[in-house]
Design a protein around this nucleic acid. Sequence first.
DNA 1: GAATAGCGTTCGTATATACGAACATTGGAG
DNA 2: CTCCAATGTTCGTATATACGAACGCTATTC
Lengths: 259, 259
Amino acid sequence: MPPVPHRTTSRILDILETVALHPQGISLSDIAQSLEVPKSSIHPLLATLADRNYLKSNKKEQRFFLGENLFVLGNKFVNDADILDKIKEVLLYVAEKTSETLYFGVLSNLDVLYLIKADQFSNFRVVSNPGNKLPAYSTGYGKALLSQFSAQQIRALYPSGTLPQITDNTLSTVDALNEQLEAIRNTGFSYEKGESTTGIQCVAVPIIVEGKVLSGMSIAVPVFRYDDVREQEFKAYLLEAKQKIERIITDNRSQWNYS
Amino acid sequence: MPPVPHRTTSRILDILETVALHPQGISLSDIAQSLEVPKSSIHPLLATLADRNYLKSNKKEQRFFLGENLFVLGNKFVNDADILDKIKEVLLYVAEKTSETLYFGVLSNLDVLYLIKADQFSNFRVVSNPGNKLPAYSTGYGKALLSQFSAQQIRALYPSGTLPQITDNTLSTVDALNEQLEAIRNTGFSYEKGESTTGIQCVAVPIIVEGKVLSGMSIAVPVFRYDDVREQEFKAYLLEAKQKIERIITDNRSQWNYS
DNA sequence: GAATAGCGTTCGTATATACGAACATTGGAG
DNA sequence: CTCCAATGTTCGTATATACGAACGCTATTC
């Protein structure tokens, strides 16, 4: 933590995030207005970011887009170490056995960040849906990740006591969340029923290494393919995969820089 | 172009790129030494980048790594529009038909940037992954992309007249490159024989929309699976895919912000 | 266990940068 | 065709920031 956050650095990150929020492009003036800073203050920053290909400027339409070098950096984050490849193999195995979709990710502040998605059909290695974030309390593996915190800590993380709704089924209160987290700590399994995407149910487990919840994994299933029998099957595969992955992480501890 | 490049912005990008070059982590002092700036100058920048999760600091080992939010931004670059998904489908079709690996990418300065890779098997050790860059002159589709420039322009882009070697087979002179580019302009096909990865041959085509070379696509094949008969087959599939992709781009012109 | 070498951290001041206002340019409306 | 309302751009000065040196901390070495 700096004495105060470095202003220019914060602004550059704000700029990138603002541009990211506008896939159709955004003008210098709109960025300035959105950040509540003078146009002239961010003008040189934008010019440099564009010059270095971290932003792309469409000069005709006077709009800025994200630049290719962000893609390059973003991929370096996951591609350098092969530990994620090994984990993906485990996920693919379960995806093939169950014909359902597996997710693997970590906690990023109060959001879950999808690092890997594995399903039967799109098993080529393009960073696609990974990279998305969702509020942790609204997803199966998000709740698995939150289970590392005590009820008291959870209350401190969500001081308002209420949780913004994503769907009709999203948990709405911190008390309800804490109740589920307690169950997760006791049983080792986390459940989600259409709380982030209507029509999708999940079972999830936390990945725990040396007593710490490092990441989580979930299997996502359309409601119409979900029943009690299959749930038992999913849980068995999840447990098997969990152990494999915890072993992989233990054996490659130095490569784990994701949480 | 700014009056002069904005110093702080440049430094932040330099920091990120320096950290990216050190997957095993790098200390504040080493970053400072590498950029030839005082430690105290970048200290607040690093603290802010880490605080915002664009860098991750391992405080025990005093090392910095790339942070998850770079992954988030990098994925926004490709995920927002579904145009790349559509192109991916075309590549996957050819990958299945030929059982070989397809690449799709764009020019980024003098490098080729891999945007999509499509192959049948996910766990194969691969030439390159999306997000990687290679010198354009050393790859099949890189040469396809360079074919949009005249011999004179190419000489201006590589003023030394010589090309750094990647493998034993990399083209070594700009004259040799220009000779091949002329052939590409005439035939529409670009060839590579182990010039970036020993043992891999490529055939590639440029993707041309409204007279402009926007991107390129290649099929990468181990030498031992490559022969004249298959080459004809590859070229037929590439032509078919090229037309499909050019159509996709034409129909989704507004989504194309990649080059 | 003392000494050392490396690291991150702090702080006052020289210096680069951010700001606001005025200017320039473009596209669209009347 | 003219005007207007956007946009991006420039420039001098107030201001935040970068610098260098000194400090403190930790871990390794002898």
